[in-house]
Nucleic acid binder design. Structure first.
Length: 277
DNA sequence: AGCCAGGACAAGT
DNA sequence: ACTTGTCATGGC
């Protein structure tokens, strides 16, 4: 049954530098899954999408031209020339190696609220369990979408709950952090929409008004949830990389795309046995 | 079985 | 301003 005014279809877009396995499994997002048929299914912006990539063509199934223009083109950052950015980043030998290891990584432009919640949940946690907690959060409190999937629940919805309601998530000590975030966002005490245009230090300060949001979660929110590609989240892996390979600091001339560099380095350090860490 | 996970907080120097 | 113990749960 078709519920939309527009029939869903498959969009074919020529794009370079895109490997779904790298994009969806490099630790930046938690709601994309490989299907038995080889496609990737995910949820973002209250929409379900199916993704394939082959020989320079990105195939988006189950969407509309309108949604592609308004949502997915930006979500996958298709207007950004990653080839050019990678060329610049390759001036650094370690980043060059990490790009060679997974050249198809791109930074997704996720929703701010979802990114912030996801990385609140990520603290002192492992990626499989992060995904499980987020899945339960969506199934319990998110709106139902096509195909039995669930949207990410809004801050307004979560702000009405208490810690007992979140118990089935098994998110541990993070439950009260999720609630504090929901309440401060729903009440307008923290204005996520304003983060995009704030100076970085001010944006970090604003985010850290929330219990459970420290420097690392704030930077992940800004990089993955606000498109701030100059933001450089430092987690345990990146800290090891910095101590070992950049004792004099990260190269200044690459700071403009520091967040993208950080993601190549993170994935390389975490996944490549021969990276030296 | 035990260590550790894309950290942050609170209390202590 | 820097250091340390603690937090709840479960993946490996």
């Amino acid at each position: 049954m078709v519920t939309d005014q527009t029939y869903k279809q498959t969009m074919l877009i020529p794009v370079g530098d895109f490997d779904p396995d790298s994009v969806f499994n490099c630790g930046q997002c938690f709601r994309w899954n490989l299907q038995p048929d080889g496609s990737w299914k995910g949820i973002a912006y209250n929409r379900v999408l199916s993704v394939r990539y082959r020989e320079g063509i990105l195939a988006l199934a189950g969407t509309t031209p309108e949604d592609f223009e308004e949502i997915w083109s930006d979500y996958f950052d298709l207007k950004t020339d990653y080839g050019k950015i990678k060329q610049r980043l390759c001036s650094d030998p370690l980043i060059a190696r990490s790009i060679r290891y997974a050249p198809g990584i791109r930074i997704l432009r996720q929703e701010t609220w979802e990114a912030m919640c996801s990385f609140i949940i990520s603290q002192n946690n492992n990626i499989p369990r992060i995904r499980g907690i987020i899945l339960r959060l969506c199934e319990l409190f998110g709106d139902r979408l096509d195909g039995g999937e669930y949207a990410f629940p809004s801050a307004a919805r979560l702000s009405m709950l208490d810690e007992n309601d979140l118990e089935p998530l098994r998110s541990g000590f993070r439950a009260r952090y999720i609630l504090d975030a929901a309440r401060k966002v729903a009440s307008g005490e923290v204005r996520l929409a304003a983060l995009r245009d704030m100076p970085l230090p001010q944006a970090r300060e604003e985010l850290q008004k929330i219990k459970g949001v420290g420097p690392k979660v704030a930077d992940c929110t800004l990089l993955f949830g606000c498109g701030r590609m100059d933001c450089f989240p430092v987690d345990v892996w990146i800290r090891k990389v910095l101590e070992r390979f950049y004792p004099n600091g990260f190269p200044e001339e690459l700071a403009e795309y520091g967040g993208i560099a950080q993601q190549y380095l993170f994935h390389y350090a975490r996944c490549c046995p021969e990276c030296g860490l």
